[in-house]
Amino acid sequence: MDGHNHGELDWVLVLAPYRKDAAFIELLLVEHGMNVRVCAKTDDLGEMLSQSPGVILATHESLTNETIDAVANHLSGQPNWSDLPIFLLLDRRAPQARIRAELEKRWPQARQMFFQRPVVSLELVSGIQSALLARLRQREVRDSFEREKELRFELNHRVKNILASVTSIFRMTRRGADTIDALTTDFEGRLGALANVHSAVFEQGGDTVALRGIVDLTLKPYSADTTKRFRIEGPELTLTREAGTTLALCLHELVTNAIKYGALSTVTGRISVIWEVSTSKQPILKLEWIEMGGPPVKEPSRTGYGTRYIRSALAAVFGERPVVTFDPKGLRCVVSGPLSNVVPKN
């Protein structure tokens, strides 16, 4: 009987058991582009109601106790956003006032509209069309409620993750710091890097961030002087939030290390940040941080937070471990891995 696929709230349920009423009504509504399902047996009513009709159209003859109960039961389970319109076609000789009073009592949650038969097609069709439009608006409201719920869960999840990360960063910074001042400076710097990349991701819509933007925001505070200390080169690339965040934190560690011990600790030092994407079938992103012109570099006696973080974090994002070289001429950090690991999938 029913070969159509109906969505939610966008179809009319017809209850019209007398003679050919259902067929006439269906024809009229279908002619006007509406989706219609006729309930031929009262036994099927519960099942059909559970599929969320947008509008119910019921004739006088359909209003048995059983039907009224089934509809009442459906109405009592309706969520707050739902306002189900029911069109009732009554005979001129029917006890209209009594039926109205009875239905007001039994279906308090429904918006009831009464038409006297014979109905004027124009009135009935435009009434139902307008009710269906209102139902689509209600469906949008429902979807935005659900979206909001999802967002709140996601937000909770992210806040928890961020707080856990900040706690860990604090504990690790404390383990590596010799004085309270050093702890404060290092911790503020790391938190600042996290905050900056968060803002950059937010400004780009929440899920991606430009690689150049990450590099610029990390190095900008140190590019103020007139000598050109940085050479930044590479194609425009959009990274995932995770990859962008990790990269920003790594660049922060590199730049603070350069200020303390490397190229930015002298006036002549320079740093190149260069990235390129191979033209192979599965493109590889290669990113290089190269310092030069600073004091001679010595391999540190113990692995600090920065180096450890860079190694672990870049390996997790790129899928390949970075190569960190303590070249006497300047520190180098080179990492490469499949581009697909760091750019959004689509």
């Binding site: 993750n161 856990a164 706690t167 860990s168 690790m172 990790t246 973080y309 672990s312 997790a316």
Partner: peptide
């Protein structure tokens, strides 16, 4: 642990 910072800590 998949979260790098938590794992390092």
């Amino acid at each position: 642990e998949d979260e790098v910072i938590i794992r390092m800590d």
